[in-house]
Design a protein around this nucleic acid. Structure first.
Lengths: 269, 269
DNA sequence: TCCTTACTGGGTACAGTGTACGAAGTTATG
DNA sequence: CATAACTTCGTACACTGTACCCAGTAAGGA
């Protein structure tokens, strides 16, 4: 139970095989396996059983091969995690399509609507693959998918009055918000599964402690809020994702408006 | 290399020992150790050597005791992680002080300044203990420190025109933003240490790939931004934390203003 | 045709992990 | 002083990633 580290191994290997398939050598037996199948199997296992269950042996079993055979295709687990990340990042991205086209589509409803769509897509991605945030990216390995996604986002914001640094910071802000919220949501979702304790059991275990120590005079506001149901009632906006997203976008919109006032430029929305 | 899971073990144990010290039994030899020393040693190791180096054996060595002796004080590693989290969360919080006093102090400069202080404190905490976000909190174990911190934040926002749900969402938003950004910062900071690859070496390894594949016609915006230095130039606002924080607070401020207009209430700032 | 070379598959082994179990030592109580 | 309760902690087990090595396979050269 320790954060799995990607990017720990041979960096240029990861980059090489991510950016173009390696050329098959001429001699020797034909490989019975390929990287794509390994990565897919690994993602399948991680999705279904969690990252803790993702061992090299488990992947090999899934594929019906010997454990060490995997090391003919990938130098180590760290690189495999790199590849898994790039694979899932690419789920919503068509690498063949020109990023400009996708950016243009996103811009159609204005840059704010475009950012919203990107944020919701990323949010859904994290819920679909709850292990993503458990892979500690030592350093972001710039695979084709993340690069393309970044280009799309940058082009979406290009020309609305921000400089390159400001655009990047806006994108980082959205990313930080989405991943921060996703972390909460994902961990809460996994809790029941992993601990074998349902949400109800959990709050029943916590409840007595919460109530005992909260009903005293030290925590009046929290007591009131708990009684109002903030911990238990679900208003449909899971973990306040939509609420927070709108606040963040409001803040960005104000900034863009101010920047436009300082340096008037041909705006978009 | 897998995310460490807190909250996986006996939940009521964690809660009990967090909320009050256990009573010493009368018979038997006096314990040569105590929980506090174990938790402190564990935090020391995690701070200095990273979570990956934090094994029960390592902690025992640090304390000069046998590995299994630790299990007389803590049921397992998961609970120890719970305790480590509550301990560091409590670093900036005086549990003896009335939360209301601290909230009043924070409110002095207005609720926005108070939120800013909380956010910066949390940011600093995560940089001080880079392992915090690598501990996947199955479910947030509500220890005294986090409860007190939450009460302080709630009381800071109380009476500015938001209901309890809205207050909680605002606090979650700040938390999500801070942790999301901290994750980026912490992982980048740990990368050099763990991989033995310096920042320069890293960008030199990535550089050729970045340039080769970005200079083509598919990534014009990113190419321009990279040449402008967005990936390499440091403008002092590490990872855009301050930039993003101000955008988030702007968004919250607009929301508070709108809520105040709908349901006029005695405001604060 | 057969040897050489290059490759793939995968078994075994090793150092590391968390922790269950149990034996041995220590202390307060009857 | 025996007993019960408690401590310390060595050993053992199932698990991990992966280094090393050997057997088997396929293509190129003689």
């Amino acid at each position: 139970m320790t954060t799995e580290y990607s990017g720990g191994g041979d960096l240029s290997f990861s980059l090489k095989i991510m950016w173009r398939g390696g050329e098959r050598p001429s001699r020797g037996p034909k490989p019975g396996l390929d990287l794509t199948r390994i990565v897919e199997a690994a993602i399948r296992v991680a999705d279904a059983e969690g990252l803790a269950a993702l061992s090299m042996r488990r992947i090999a079993t899934e594929l019906g091969v010997g454990t060490m055979s995997l090391y003919r295709y990938v130098p180590g687990k760290a690189e495999l995690l790199d590849l898994m990340l790039d694979a899932v990042y690419g789920e919503d991205i068509d690498l063949e399509q020109d990023p400009g086209q996708e950016a243009a589509r996103l811009r159609a409803g204005g840059w704010r609507a475009g950012l919203e769509e990107i944020a919701r897509g990323s949010w859904a991605l994290h819920l679909r693959h709850p292990w993503i945030l458990q892979v500690s990216q030592a350093r972001p390995v710039l695979g084709p998918s993340s690069i393309t996604g970044l280009e799309i986002a940058m082009r979406l914001l290009d020309g609305i009055g921000l400089d390159d640094f400001q655009m990047m910071k806006v994108i980082s802000l959205i990313d930080s918000y989405v991943t921060g919220t996703a972390r909460l949501a994902v961990e809460a979702g996994q809790a029941a599964q992993r601990t074998g304790v349902s949400d109800e059991d959990f709050w029943q275990a916590q409840g007595p402690f919460i109530m005992r120590f909260m009903s005293d005079e030290r925590f009046p506001t929290l007591t009131r809020a708990a009684e109002a149901g903030v911990f238990t009632v679900d208003d449909g906006d899971g973990f306040g994702f939509e609420f927070g997203l709108q606040r963040v976008l409001d803040g960005i919109e104000a900034f863009v408006a101010a920047a436009g006032r300082e340096h008037p430029a041909p705006g978009t929305g």
